[in-house]
Write a protein that binds this DNA or RNA. Structure first.
Lengths: 350, 350
DNA sequence: CTGAAAGCGCTTACAG
DNA sequence: CTGAAAGCGCTTACAG
């Protein structure tokens, strides 16, 4: 080791102890705010610590205490919107606890997932937050088998899980959005769903159906489109809906990304929102308020969900038990400018 | 410790060694693929490792080798677009190296930054990627003082730094965008800049000026707006430009978020893009291709920048030296559907 | 109130 | 080719 490197090396507890003329044990007690140190000694050591700007070595602490101070967040892909909303809340919670957040995107690639899982298993995480609608290699189970705490955010494909999950009242969101459109006078309401094998998709759809049925409006299968939750799906399905013999007067998109796709199609076809077509989204991600025109959508409390999930995980890590394995925060309708009563007369195909 | 916990505990190298009837040293050599182990012994130990799905303890390794396997990425806020583009590239590079990515958003809060810095100083990071246009508390310097490798991404406010930075040819982007609009016949081109104290803003502006001057078009200060790089700034400045006595026929936005704001204003005022107004953005973030109409913009190779920054950092961590302290990747014009020749006759104020 | 000592699970000279 | 031993920098019973 060269001299230069030696000089730049951070101090150890032993060095602090030596300088203060006390034992390492005593320094450790001061650092960890443990009792059993005289007031004067404590003050002297404290001063020394501050003077040198000493920080405990993380690795040694980790090795002894078995805590890495790290939380892993697993997401499908870095795409903004929904995931970022959740991350905001997670970050906020971790800021208080002092944990750092490791972010990992699976890109739905099994090999990548397995490699990450291996890297995680060396006890270098305190807990994992799963932000995946579904998984193929059973990440949650593998993690639990290793006694690594897990909390899943958003709806998962399994109706019940033996690990905690936090979601929102999706069904109610689907119901509320549809009911709102009905209240404006709409009778033909198109819905763009996600993949039907996801429970979260089915919940939206069930809410939609319930609202129609309560209003005595027959459900027209032609108005129900299956897609994925991407913008491109909104484009594709909006086109399909508009090309119908008897097109809808309102479109309820499965999420805000789809709604953005719907906007694009309406723009291209020169169909005015909301005069000629009403649109409702789902999620209420950051940009919805700024879409032209501002999108009426179902608000999911993303930040709160993230925060609560992180706090649940933290409690699990602390060895506490959770009151409930499943928490649902409430969705709500945010009325902005994308909906209006249907215009009289059929919409012309353009 | 209860029996249950005992059972779930992960194996140690010592246990593997005992089972295999060899020393810990030998197991370690096999695990780290070091020479000095007989082929048979190696095979036997290898089998044992696989059988037990043994993974080295991260904390112990970290303590001995002084490597955490962690890279920290510091960003201002989680907002998507630009930052996510960079993150994609970073993740890709780290996937190969095996490092995990810690993400931290400063929210431009000094207290938060200082707390993070402290947490970082305990040797629990291998290196830091800075994705901040500027910083108030001198993060880069503090990190360097602690011998923690740093690489900054995107342009920084300092013209020169004593740590590596990676950016793109912003000036050229400003020039190219303006030149393109001129080539379409535009003479009055509005530009929405970012904060003028940022070098990155001034580079765009200098490119804009250069293109105008080369074309013999006088620079009209009224057409130059200062804003911030958010969507709201695009809205505000687009309104200002449209309210001018002699409004521009094209608007060059400082980034794509601003361009989205411009779109919104044009939509509200029922000014058609590109027939009545041309718009150019900057960055080429994920959603630009999907804006209605698809936005013509200056492409920054965000993923490549992130990847290269990560690789530079990795090299620094490995003790290698870098060829250059400053790398600039090239920007390019991506022509989509938001520009057209100016319509004849003045644009009516609406 | 204070401190000597064991030990967390590895890696790495070094000796055989 | 193989292994005993020191040590990375802490925390934590335990003894004084």
């Amino acid at each position: 080791m060269t001299l230069e490197q030696k000089q730049s090396k951070r101090l150890t507890m032993a060095q602090i102890a030596k300088e203060a003329g006390v034992s390492i044990t005593t320094v450790s007690k001061v650092l960890n705010q443990l009792p059993g140190v005289g007031a004067q000694t404590r003050a002297r050591i404290q001063a020394m610590i501050e003077q040198h700007d000493y920080v405990q070595n993380h690795a040694a602490r980790h090795l002894r205490k078995g805590q890495s101070g790290l939380i892993d967040l697993v997401i499908m892909r870095l795409e903004g919107g929904y995931d970022l909303g959740i991350m905001h809340g997670v970050q906020e919670a971790l800021e208080e606890s002092g944990h750092r957040l490791v972010v990992f995107a699976t890109h739905e690639d099994e090999a990548v997932e397995r490699r990450w899982l291996r890297r995680i298993q060396d006890q270098s995480t305190d807990g994992v937050l799963l932000l995946l609608p579904y998984e193929r290699i059973g990440i949650a189970e593998m993690l639990m088998a290793q006694n690594i705490p897990v909390v899943a955010i958003g709806d998962r494909n399994e109706p019940t899980t033996n690990y905690p999950t936090i979601g929102s009242t999706i069904w109610l969101g689907g119901y509320t959005a549809t009911e709102y459109l009905i209240s404006l006078g709409h009778r033909r309401i198109g819905i763009i769903a996600g993949p039907l094998h996801l429970t979260t998709t089915r919940a939206r759809l069930a809410g939609y159906r319930e609202a129609l049925e309560r209003a005595g409006i027959p459900v027209d299968p032609a108005l129900i489109c299956e897609g994925n939750y991407f913008l491109g799906d909104g484009i594709k399905q909006a086109n399909a809906l508009l090309d119908l013999e008897d097109p809808p007067t309102a479109i309820f998109a499965g999420n805000d990304a789809q709604a953005a796709g719907v906007y694009q199609v309406l723009y291209q076809r020169q169909v005015r929102i909301p005069d000629e077509m009403s649109v409702v989204g789902f999620d209420d991600v950051m940009y919805t308020a700024q879409m032209p025109p501002p999108l009426t959508t179902i608000h999911q409390p993303l930040a709160e969900m993230g925060k609560m999930a992180a706090n649940m995980l933290l409690r699990l890590i602390g060895g506490q038990t959770l009151e409930s394995n499943r928490v649902e925060l409430s969705t709500s309708l945010v009325i902005r400018d994308s909906c209006a009563p249907p215009r009289t007369g059929p919409l012309l195909n353009r």
